[in-house]
């Protein structure tokens, strides 16, 4: 392991280096002269590793990983720890997911409380607010983390966030920052939403049409970079520009909506999930019923992040439709 020289620049460790955001962060830090060394922690090496990046194999589901991590952090004098080892889509291996997200975060925080890096950045999602009929149109960071009933995918992240909140309270010296990303869409990212929208048909809860919000993958990566750079602490919603009703999103995507009563969809998705035919659990249907849209004013104010790409541009980019295409209005351009 090469010894680091903190006097030359900042040293960053990134868990989940193989996720989309982790990989983008590595690439951006590689180009940034203020960072002298980046440690990519994951169970397999990231795709592109530059000269600054060192890959260290680390499995957060192992029971003694916190000790290993603490030794590593002490030896390498990491000053910024980015915790991004979270699943981007639900899995049937619920026990493993729990070990990785909830217990894995515990291991990370154990190591950080021993070594105390200057800064801790955690990657989370706005799904932790949960889709609820009582949600206001724009959820601020102070809103309750309702989580989501019957969804370990969301609730494990809520538990991880609670642990980080407690850690932040107990260790005021560590700048702790949580980024809650709106669902990320884009040409290269792969997560629950991109899989959901890749199917030619999509379920619609008959008579319901909530507003939806997406953040472009490049905007999301930029926000993560900003968060690593800055000294801001607390939770931040990382959102895209604008909202659109769910059925309009489907129309822009050219997906065929399949409207059916709620009960029918719930029963059908239960069967499809149990037989492992679809990647989204039945409880995800709540997000097609009620609002879960976050407010990005705090990130704009304190982090200096403002989304650059509109929701429509994000959707078209996900489809691979180039920006030259009829600048503002698809319906008119295609009519």
């Amino acid at each position: 392991m090469p010894s680091s020289t903190p006097s030359q620049g900042r040293v960053v460790a990134v868990t989940g280096a193989c996720t989309y955001l982790g990989g983008e962060l590595l690439r951006r830090l590689e180009e940034d002269p203020r960072y002298s060394r980046v440690y990519a922690l994951d169970i397999r090496p990231p795709a592109e590793v530059g000269g600054k990046v060192d890959f260290i194999k680390l499995d957060l589901t192992q029971p003694t990983v916190d000790g290993e991590l603490a030794t590593l952090l002490a030896k390498t004098q990491v000053d910024t720890f980015v915790h991004g080892a979270f699943l981007s889509h639900p899995t049937h291996a619920a026990e493993w997911a729990h070990e990785l997200e909830d217990v894995g975060t515990m291991h990370v925080l154990n190591a950080c409380s021993g070594v105390q890096p200057k800064r801790l950045v955690m990657v989370s999602t706005t799904l932790v607010y949960g889709a609820h009929p009582k949600n206001p149109n724009f959820l601020t960071e102070d809103a309750e983390l309702r989580g989501h009933r019957d969804s370990r995918f969301v609730n494990d992240k809520v538990r991880a966030e609670r642990q980080v909140q407690r850690f932040a309270k107990e260790h005021p010296d560590v700048e702790t920052c949580v980024l809650r990303f709106a669902p990320i869409l884009g040409p290269t990212v792969s997560n629950m939403y991109t899989r959901f929208f890749s199917r030619p048909v999509a379920p619609v809860m008959m008579g319901h049409d909530p507003l939806m919000q997406f953040v472009h993958e490049q905007d999301a990566a930029w926000a993560l970079q900003k968060a690593v750079d800055s000294h801001a602490t607390g939770a931040f919603n990382i959102i895209g520009k604008g909202v659109l009703p769910y059925t309009t999103v489907l129309a822009l995507l050219g997906r065929v909506p399949l409207p059916a009563p709620q009960i029918a969809w719930r029963q059908l998705t239960k069967v499809l999930w149990a037989t492992q035919l679809v990647g989204s659990p039945p409880s995800f249907l709540d997000f097609l019923l009620y609002l879960c849209v976050a407010d990005g004013a705090r990130a704009r104010r304190e982090l200096g992040y403002a989304p650059r790409l509109s929701i429509k541009r994000t959707i078209l980019d996900f489809l691979g439709i180039a920006p030259e295409d009829g600048a503002t209005d698809v319906a008119r351009a295609m009519g």
Partner: peptide, 23 residues
């Protein structure tokens, strides 16, 4: 067919709504 479907599906709705969903 896909393109035709997309333009058909956008009939009567705009691709920009305000923050609170007015189309």
């Amino acid at each position: 067919v896909w393109r035709r479907w997309r333009s058909l599906a956008m009939w009567g709705r705009s691709d920009v709504v305000d923050d609170f969903g007015r189309d």
